[in-house]
């Protein structure tokens, strides 16, 4: 593995390898090994053009637990706010000896450009680009699902995952549909027609406008954040109506099967797409997703940087 740009780049074997590696790394953390040695002497740059707390901290924690040196570069208060291009920033990082760059960018495709333009020689990990993809989120979701529904082993054959909400602006949804299909799960997207992307009928999943009709038979419900900061038009009449039709409340949660789990990539709008009592309920694995995020990102960094460089 040289880069991780899209969940679509992961073959079935790659995806299983990442999940199995994450499992061993999570076990090490559980056994109290706070620091592992494989990335000693390697430098990981977190290049964040967009605000992010959990993803950046998660990547930082992951790199540090593997003994890598971490440089955090956020666009705010840096040369980027003076107008520096992605290319010049990349050349600077290359000159400083970055072995891998974790990039979050508001433009879809920026990680792909960074990986393939020949500006840098190291690996590139997509930590979210525009409304395109967020592959490590999909991996941590798959890891969480596998732990709960498949005893932490194998793939997700036959698991029914329902993804609800703002699919239009969601890179999480796209990456999840790709990866879950690779792992054999069945995906159903539920959203108002205005919040479904153009061309969604070509995605490898079912699409529905009706949440209530989709609850039964779901093994997992993944609630997406309503991304108001990306909304430049009226996609639904008001928050109350959205919540009524597409929010997950206790009444709806109780209609799920006994073993079904509730997920959310965070940050949550409590009271909007998910009610507070659902978010804090027994079925919610949201906090676990965060912990799993560190293990999965450790696995990705280890697989990209933990071996020889020529591949």
């Amino acid at each position: 593995m040289k880069h991780l740009l899209s969940a679509a780049d992961l073959s079935y074997e790659d995806a299983i390898l990442v999940l199995d590696t994450a499992k061993q790394l999570a076990a090490a953390t559980e056994q109290g090994v706070g620091k592992l040695p494989p990335l000693r002497g390697r430098t990981v740059v977190n290049l964040f053009y967009e605000d992010s707390t959990r993803t950046r901290i998660s990547f930082e924690a992951a790199a540090k637990r593997l003994s890598a040196d971490v440089i955090n570069f956020s666009a705010k208060g840096s040369s980027v706010s003076k107008g520096e291009s992605l290319k010049d920033t990349a050349l600077t990082l290359e000159a400083m000896g970055a072995d891998a760059v974790v990039i979050r960018h508001n433009s879809s495709g920026a990680p792909h450009r960074l990986a393939n333009a020949g500006w840098i020689s190291g690996g590139v990990v997509n930590a979210g680009d525009g409304t395109h993809e967020h592959p490590t989120q999909a991996l941590l979701d798959a890891f969480t699902l596998r732990n709960h529904l498949r005893n932490g082993e194998g793939d997700l054959k036959g698991v029914n995952v329902t993804i609800v909400g703002d699919v239009l602006h969601s890179r999480v949804a796209r990456s999840n549909v790709l990866l879950l299909n690779t792992l054999g799960a069945k995906v159903r997207l539920v959203a108002p027609p205005t919040l479904l992307p153009y061309g969604v009928e070509d995605w490898d999943c079912e699409v529905s406008y009706d949440l209530d009709a989709s609850l039964e038979g779901s093994d997992a419900v993944m609630m997406l954040r309503v991304q108001r900061e990306r909304m430049n038009a009226a996609y639904f009449p008001n928050a109350h109506e959205y919540s009524n039709r597409y929010g997950l409340n206790v009444t709806r949660m109780n209609r799920l099967s006994e073993s079904a789990v509730v997920m959310h990539p965070g940050p949550m709008n409590r009271g909007m797409e998910i009610s507070a009592d659902v978010a804090d309920s027994q079925r919610s694995v949201i906090v676990e997703q965060v912990a799993n995020g560190v293990s999965v990102r450790m696995a990705v960094l280890y697989l990209i940087l933990g071996g020889s460089e020529s591949m």
């Binding site: 790394l25 076990a27 071996g307």
Partner: peptide
């Protein structure tokens, strides 16, 4: 560093 990243085994 002499080979691509190796799979981890259980501890």
């Amino acid at each position: 560093r002499s080979r691509p990243a190796r799979a981890l085994l259980p501890t």
